[in-house]
Simulated assay, not measured.
Amino acid sequence: MEKDHFSEFVEGLALHFGQDKYVQDSETTRMRLRSWFAQVKHLPAEPLEWMSDQIKRRWDYFPRNLSKTMLELWDQWLREHPKKRAGKQRPDCPYCLEGWIMAYAPAGRGYSKELVELGAAIRCGHCSRDFQDKDIWCATVQEIRAAGWEPMELSDGTYSEQGAQYIQKVIRWLNTRRAKGQGQSAKG
Rank of each mutant, 00 (worst) to 15 (best):
I101A: 07
E143Q: 12
L115H: 05
A14L: 14
C124L: 08
M51R: 04
V10C: 05
M51A: 05
V170S: 02
F62R: 07
K169D: 11
A146M: 02
E114F: 14
G125R: 04
G18E: 03
L33V: 03
S112F: 10
D92G: 12
S160F: 10
N65L: 13
M102E: 07
F131D: 01
A147T: 01
W173G: 01
C93R: 01
K187W: 04
E80Y: 08
M152E: 12
W50T: 04
K113V: 01
Y111V: 14
E46Q: 09
W173Q: 07
F37P: 00
P151F: 07
E143G: 06
L13H: 02
T176M: 04
D20G: 10
G87D: 13
T140Y: 10
P106L: 12
L13V: 01
G87T: 07
D75F: 08
I144K: 12
G110Y: 06
H5N: 13
T140F: 13
D20F: 01
E150K: 15
R85S: 08
L154F: 13
H42T: 10
G119L: 14
R58F: 07
H81E: 03
G18N: 04
V10R: 07
A103M: 03
C96F: 09
K113Y: 12
S7D: 14
E2P: 00
W137N: 00
G110K: 05
L15F: 11
V10G: 00
W59H: 13
D135Y: 12
P106K: 05
G163M: 13
E117D: 00
W100P: 01
V116C: 08
V116E: 13
G188Q: 03
V141E: 14
Y111A: 15
S67E: 05
L66I: 04
G163N: 11
K113F: 15
S35H: 14
E161K: 09
S155H: 02
D60T: 05
A146Y: 09
A105F: 06
K169W: 06
K113C: 05
F131M: 04
R58P: 00
A139P: 00
L118A: 15
K187H: 12
A38P: 00
R85I: 10
Q132E: 12
L15K: 11
C96H: 10
P106S: 11
L43M: 15
V23T: 12
H5E: 15
A139D: 00
W59G: 02
Y95P: 00
K41T: 01
D4F: 15
E8K: 06
E2V: 07
E153G: 06
Y61C: 08
E11K: 03
S35L: 11
C96R: 04
K3F: 10
L174T: 03
D130W: 08
A38K: 11
K84F: 12
R58G: 05
K3V: 03
K169A: 14
A38S: 15
R57I: 00
V116N: 02
D25K: 03
K88G: 07
G125D: 03
V141F: 07
I55K: 04
A179V: 00
A121E: 06
E161P: 00
V23R: 03
D20C: 01
G119C: 08
W100S: 03
L48I: 01
E8N: 08
K41V: 08
E8T: 01
W74L: 13
G183H: 02
F37M: 05
A86W: 09
R123E: 02
W36L: 04
R34A: 06
Q142E: 14
